[in-house]
Design a protein around this nucleic acid. Sequence first.
DNA 1: GCAAAACATTGACCTAGGTCAAAAAATCAT
DNA 2: ATGATTTTTTGACCTAGGTCAATGTTTTGC
Lengths: 190, 190
Amino acid sequence: MEAKNNLKQLIQMFSVFDGKDLDKVVDCFKTRLIKKNEILLCEGDIAKEFYFINSGCIRTYFITKQGHEKTRYLMIEPSIGTALTSFISQKPSFEFIDALENTEVLAISYKDFYRLADEIQAWKNFYLKIMEMAYSFQNRKIESLVTLSATERYKQLIKENPKIVQRVSNKILASYLDIKQETLSRLKSK
Amino acid sequence: MEAKNNLKQLIQMFSVFDGKDLDKVVDCFKTRLIKKNEILLCEGDIAKEFYFINSGCIRTYFITKQGHEKTRYLMIEPSIGTALTSFISQKPSFEFIDALENTEVLAISYKDFYRLADEIQAWKNFYLKIMEMAYSFQNRKIESLVTLSATERYKQLIKENPKIVQRVSNKILASYLDIKQETLSRLKSK
DNA sequence: GCAAAACATTGACCTAGGTCAAAAAATCAT
DNA sequence: ATGATTTTTTGACCTAGGTCAATGTTTTGC
């Protein structure tokens, strides 16, 4: 109940809904409780759900040919996301989604997500906002990868997402920053 | 005339239009002829136009604090794009847009672009497709940055975009691949 | 056609971050 | 509470790519 109110609040930050449409949207979301280390999506599966994180932490990551984990997104409450490329294309994902903490999400299926986009203009606008924000996020990520040193990326993360730094292990943080955990250890102690 | 037919063809690859709506959309695009090295957008300006490249080549790039150019997008005909972050947000861009060759574009203003999105569902769907494709492109870019060596990135570019490699100088290619031109020279001769 | 400018290549040297291993610290499961 | 496992830190060593300078090649503008 509380989770659905949180979801309503987040949605309305990005798109103007009338009450009935918003209820209709929110009713399509189902509560999921996920245990720490549980995998929501395996590589090779199709991402059939989109998530609102009501509490906890989930991440998307992939594994390189050399066997290195690269963390793509870290999401703590309140936020939204999924393995977006697979969700959009409905093709097998090369990303995993897992939970770094016990996590409560509200999940909406691909079918409902797109059906609502056809039926409710405000939801389609919301979806556009999601894509715009995701695009801008990727832009900043690329800019930081090509212009900042490892130390600078770490400092930037501390400044912009202190909560994430507190809650996530150094191993995971390092894989999110595109550095090795030995390197993160060293630059933390400078 | 020919350009507008090319634009119609490209649009219809991504979204289903009826004839009248498509004409209405295409009528909002104006022809622009741009000379090689002409700057379409300066850092600090707001991106007020979205482009269809009918012939030629344009790129978006930014300059780091150290004064290095980093090329973000290379677009040869037929393609679409702009400095998307600034276009979406209507805030000053940190990217430049310039022409690497004499180029003919069809340009649509921000106002028309969004007005059409309100009036014509197929255009809004088209815009969604643009965002989805842009997002996927960024994803692949990030993946290549964090998993491939300089040589591998170069080889991937040759394989996936041979036309671009032929038409764009090594200096620009290097800045697109996030390597220095000395490095590109060296790995080309291996 | 020619000088200037820009692009490309090559040489020599340097360093940020990776790799591998070992040790220490923290967390987990019983 | 304790042993096992995982995470983190530290040490020593290595290398891909950067930096700077010089030279060669190609393109541009007059």
